[in-house]
Computed example of a mutant assay.
Amino acid sequence: MNEINESHDTGSVREFTVSDADAGPYALTEGPDGALWFTLVHRGAVARRDPDDGLVTVHPVGDGPTVITAGPDGALWFTEYRAHRIGRLTPEGDYASFAPRTPGGGPFGITAGPDGAMWFTLSSADRVGRVTVDGEVTEYPAPGAFPSALTTGSDGALWCTLNQGNAVGRLTTDGHGTAYPLPTGGAGPVGIAAGPDGALWFTEIGAGRIGRITVDGAVTEYPLPDPAARPHAVTAGPDGALWFTEWGGGRVGRITVDGDITSYALSRTDCEPHGITAHDGALWCALETGSLARIEVRP
């Protein structure tokens, strides 16, 4: 499939149609080839948007591809939530997948670990897994309920949100876990990213807040202007700030390490922005209604 269909332009925000509304662009990442790669969660596919001409190429994969990231081996790695597998796709389109040890675990978050392997969450099984680039899988108990997104912290450990445990978890590469409860009840943390300040930043979809946790476990929370924003994913931007999607309001937000918050409206309040990543000097997010949005970083 090849499409370049710009659907919305507000000056700082541009949107590009990349699929039909039923395909469900969900998460995205910059690939080792400099292109933007994204999952089509309802189509069972991973797609590539060319950085030069915007052409989109679609690769069929397993059922329910969800979060995607670049691996240390020059491939794209992603979770297949409904197929209960971990997928690997080379820039040339060669696809393979690996089964976690726990069946029906619902893999969701995935990140490149500090040890040269890929780490992932098994949300439905309360476990965290590790898969080498050769496909060898190990699993550990998560430090709390429903581990969701995860990332590598500045301390060389894995950090994950514990969506149903109302906490943020830390897991060492040898499987030792610690949970840090959040001050606000019902926060429902989802997205998490390493910040430029050495701390971890995360979204509280249930409380309408952005959280910050130091590697020592000290938590600070920042309420969003719209309590019903339902922040979902978060990433470090090229400007030294953190950027996040507001799934409930059809916006993209920006928070500085000092807690100053600004917001950018997308074309529709119901466009369902999910994943977000830095790419080509801007921020890009996936809109489940069929588009990718590019948010310009301005001084």
Score class of each variant (00 low, 15 high):
F98Q: 07
S154T: 11
A149G: 04
A99V: 11
Q164D: 14
G144S: 07
R85Y: 00
S97F: 14
G113H: 04
A117G: 10
A112E: 10
R127Q: 15
P141C: 04
S123A: 12
G109V: 08
D94R: 07
P103T: 14
R127V: 05
D115N: 12
G106M: 03
T90F: 08
V133A: 15
Y81G: 01
T138R: 13
W119P: 01
F78M: 03
F98C: 01
M118N: 03
G109S: 01
A83C: 04
G153P: 12
T138P: 00
A112Q: 13
A142W: 07
G104L: 08
V131T: 01
V131F: 08
G87R: 05
G106S: 00
D73K: 13
I86Q: 08
E139N: 10
G104Q: 07
D155M: 13
F78S: 02
R82Y: 11
F98D: 03
D126H: 09
G156H: 12
Y81E: 04
G135M: 12
S97Q: 15
G93V: 02
T151V: 13
W119C: 02
A149N: 14
A75S: 15
G113M: 05
F120C: 06
T132C: 05
G116P: 13
G165N: 13
D115L: 05
G109A: 04
R85G: 08
G106H: 04
P147T: 01
D134F: 14
L89R: 06
T90P: 09
S148Y: 10
A96T: 15
A145Q: 14
T161G: 12
S97T: 11
S97P: 02
G106R: 04
E139H: 12
I86H: 02
R127P: 01
L89V: 09
P141Q: 09
P91K: 03
W119M: 02
G153Y: 09
Y140H: 14
L158K: 06
A96C: 10
Q164K: 13
G156C: 12
V128L: 15
